[in-house]
Design a protein around this nucleic acid. Structure first.
Lengths: 225, 225
DNA sequence: GAACGACTTCAGGATTGCTTAAGATTATGG
DNA sequence: CCATAATCTTAAGCAATCCTGAAGTCGTTC
């Protein structure tokens, strides 16, 4: 629910296998079968990308280059044995990983987990002043005191917290944290935000309103008077 | 308090990488490239071992067997995919961890740290207040008193206990502790959880419900009023 | 100060979890 | 190999909890 993985793979059989295995490991997965569709996604809403290079429409490298302009999220590259390894390796040095087909889905999952574990492992949660959000344990502490959040409340907070200081649109929040595609539901979000703030007490100020856009979980909240 | 780690790995490139990463993480590291050299060390002077299985001279298992006669210090086993997993897993149950190549050095460091974080106390098993879960012996004690759990009940408890404090989804629990892929079966899990709690008595509070997600085996259960 | 966006309160209605009991399956002992 | 016991699964009713949307108020922007 909290970790959203984008899979770009045109082979239907392989793609399906990947998606299933990732979902079984509790990742939220979005799958695109061609480069043009993948190009349209908001890359900022993912935590990791699994990218096949040989795609109809656009080559994987081109996608990667574009994404790299605005983001540095981890990308795991899938290559056929025929692709020249040197070239791939060159890209892989940019913080990315690569896997040669054929591979075991489990192997992929292991790598995805390894990639996503690091940030949460060392710090044991995301801190915002007194607020500590532990995605693993699904627990929130304020000044060391555990705070009870409901499922959706936690999902919303975690979604914002993992995107530290980034302004996230209401739409994006609604689409990614509330059940189903609901057309409206933006008013519902208000309610949840309201409750989260109340539960966070004084520290609720970290959950800032970005007027006309949405919300942001701020490391250093703006002081008001 | 510097932790001394013994690395036994014949691949020079990989070995070097491991050593560097561990040293960077503030461990004292000793590296041996073959089994015969490793056999001569005083195993008592280390806090942890990273052991590759395929070694020139002596197989990793033989080293492990020897060490196990006089010591129970944690060993992290490195295996190639070609090695039969069952065999490795068998050993891994002996309180050891194992990693399949290829892996990321960061992953290894994370595991080493996890192993050494808790003082390797004499207590064999996982403690949660009065509850002690011994995965090796498949035994559970509450306040020293042995408690009879059925196979599935124990599997569920062990799965949660080995992931201390982590919220585990129902799906994941069902998939990993009940036989077969069953589509539904989530209600079955409820029943098992219910029984486990009853058998744990007062200490059943450690087995917490994470609403809308699943369950968690909590070190410090939430107090209710 | 008008218009629009954001906040809060509140109460069904819906979802999720717990428990009991009974049927199905597997293990045990003769 | 059958009979019995133990265990696992399924079903169903109930309890606890949560989500949603409406409506009114408050705050910001222009």
């Amino acid at each position: 629910m909290t970790n959203h993985v984008l899979v770009v793979e045109d082979d239907v059989r392989l793609g399906q296998e990947i998606v299933e295995t990732l979902e079984q490991a509790d990742f939220q997965v979005t799958w695109h079968k061609d480069g043009t569709a993948a190009r349209r996604v908001d890359i900022g809403s993912f935590q990791l990308v699994v990218l096949d290079l040989m795609l109809p429409g656009v080559h994987g490298f081109d996608l990667l280059k574009e994404w790299r302009k605005t983001s540095d999220l981890p990308v795991i590259i899938l290559t056929a044995r025929s692709e020249t390894h040197d070239k791939v390796r060159g890209f892989a040095l940019g913080g990315d990983d690569y896997l040669t087909k054929p591979f075991w889905p489990e192997e992929l999952v292991a790598r995805v987990q390894a990639r996503l574990r690091r940030p949460t492992m060392s710090t044991a949660g995301l801190e915002f002043g007194d607020v500590l959000v532990d995605v693993d344990q699904r627990e929130v502490r304020v000044g060391g005191q555990s705070v009870d959040l409901t499922k959706v409340e936690f999902d919303i907070l975690a979604y914002l917290a993992t995107r530290r200081d980034k302004a996230v649109s209401r739409r994006q929040l609604v689409d990614n944290t509330l059940d189903e595609d609901r057309e409206g539901g933006e008013r519902t979000l208000d309610v949840h935000i309201s409750r989260i703030r109340k539960k966070l007490g004084e520290s609720g100020k970290h959950l800032e309103t970005v007027w006309g856009i949405g919300y942001r979980m701020a490391t250093e909240p703006k002081e008001k008077r």
